Computed example of a mutant assay.
Amino acid sequence: MKFVLFTTNLLMSAVLSRFAISKLAGWEISVNAFIEMAQPLGINPTFFRLFTGFVILSIVIAYLSTAIYSLFESKIGSEVKINFKKFANYSNLMGLLTMIGALLAELFLRVQPKWPLVYIAIAVIILSIINMIILKTSTKYNVQCSK
């Protein structure tokens, strides 16, 4: 279980980091996509892009933190005053909901959806659900880690 949580969270953070960087750095492909998607909503595309970039960056940090903690949990568990199970569930829920939003935006706000982006969003949704099921069924993570 620990290996699955580590691997899936690390993979999702790595994949989503590329999208956070492209939005925050203002890569041309990202700028053009957000101009297209913001038009039907009637909002500022730059604000929309930067807001989305910061949301995805926070998810990347949460996924990465979950991956690192799940890997070193036995060594740092007694030193950290967090409830790992709650944090990991919130991380995965935040990623899941954001990717549902990204999927809806891709399908309904773009003239022509970019299918690789649709597949990536679906993969993150599925992996987040798997992680939440693992966390729910695992008794290992039921104890709150506190000093």
Rank of each mutant, 00 (worst) to 15 (best):
W27T: 01
F84M: 02
K86F: 07
N92K: 09
I35L: 08
A20C: 02
V31F: 03
L10A: 14
F19L: 12
A105G: 15
I125A: 07
P116C: 09
V60M: 01
R49I: 02
L11S: 12
Y63N: 07
F72Y: 15
A20I: 03
I43E: 11
K114R: 11
V4N: 05
L117P: 03
I35K: 10
V118M: 07
P45K: 03
E73F: 13
F19Y: 14
P116T: 04
T66P: 03
E28F: 10
Y69L: 10
F72T: 10
S78W: 13
S91Q: 06
T66K: 09
V4R: 09
G42S: 11
L103K: 01
I56R: 00
Y90D: 05
L107G: 12
F54Q: 08
L24P: 08
I21S: 09
I82N: 04
S128W: 06
L109D: 00
L11H: 09
A38H: 07
E73M: 15
L41T: 02
K81H: 13
S17F: 15
M99F: 13
M1R: 03
I120K: 00
G95S: 04
L127E: 05
L93V: 06
R110G: 02
L5P: 07
I29Q: 13
L104R: 05
A88G: 09
I82S: 08
Y69V: 02
I120C: 00
T46F: 13
Y63Q: 07
L103N: 04
L64R: 01
M94D: 05
K86V: 14
L93K: 00
K81S: 15
A123R: 00
A105T: 03
L5S: 06
V55W: 05
P113K: 14
I21P: 05
F6P: 10
L103S: 06
S128N: 12
M12K: 01
L117N: 14
F84N: 00
F108P: 10
F54I: 09
I120A: 05
I68R: 13
M94I: 13
S30D: 01
L104F: 09
S17I: 15
I129A: 12
A33Y: 04
A121N: 13
T7Y: 07
K86G: 07
A62L: 10
